[in-house]
Simulated scan of single mutants.
Amino acid sequence: MKKILSALALTAFLTGCGGGPSDAEIEGLIKAEIAKANELMASLGPLGKKGITEIVNISNHGCDSHKTMDGAYACDLEITSKNMLLGDNTERKIIDLAKTNGGKWYFVR
């Protein structure tokens, strides 16, 4: 019985019940924002198309509870991207995320 309880506790811990966003959720949000920006760039013609950004990698260095907003998280991300105008770029930044009542994550701006 003790082993079963330990296994259940470990499973709950590893699945992050009610915690911050998963890496897949973060990646989905960032890629959706980049897709919107790319749409705008493409609408600017040939020069704009050179500014279309491709996400190469997103590394999550951890998400902590936000210091001033209940239910929000501050995620330390390293994002590598590239485009024809700026070349390769790696940027590390803290991005604040919160969840709607419907359970969908969004950027806090």
Rank of each mutant, 00 (worst) to 15 (best):
A72I: 02
A9W: 07
I34R: 04
K104S: 14
E27T: 08
G28T: 15
S22E: 09
A98E: 07
L29P: 05
T80N: 02
R92M: 14
A37H: 08
G48N: 03
A98Y: 09
G18A: 12
N101T: 09
G71Y: 06
L47G: 01
A9T: 09
G18F: 14
I95W: 04
T15K: 10
D76V: 10
T90V: 15
K93F: 06
I55F: 06
K36R: 10
S43R: 02
N38P: 02
K49T: 00
I30P: 05
A74E: 12
G71M: 03
V56S: 04
M69Q: 15
Y73W: 11
E91K: 15
S65C: 13
I94L: 14
V56H: 03
A37V: 09
K67V: 09
G103L: 09
I52T: 03
G48L: 00
G18T: 10
A7V: 08
M1I: 12
D96P: 13
I30W: 06
T90I: 13
I34F: 07
R109Q: 13
N83F: 03
L5G: 08
A12Q: 07
H66M: 02
E91A: 15
D23N: 11
A74Q: 12
L10S: 11
L47K: 00
H61V: 10
G62D: 10
N57Q: 11
I30D: 02
E91F: 15
W105S: 04
K50N: 06
V108Y: 11
Y106L: 10
A24M: 12
K50A: 06
D64K: 14
K2V: 10
I4T: 07
A37T: 11
L86C: 11
L14Y: 01
K50I: 03
A12P: 05
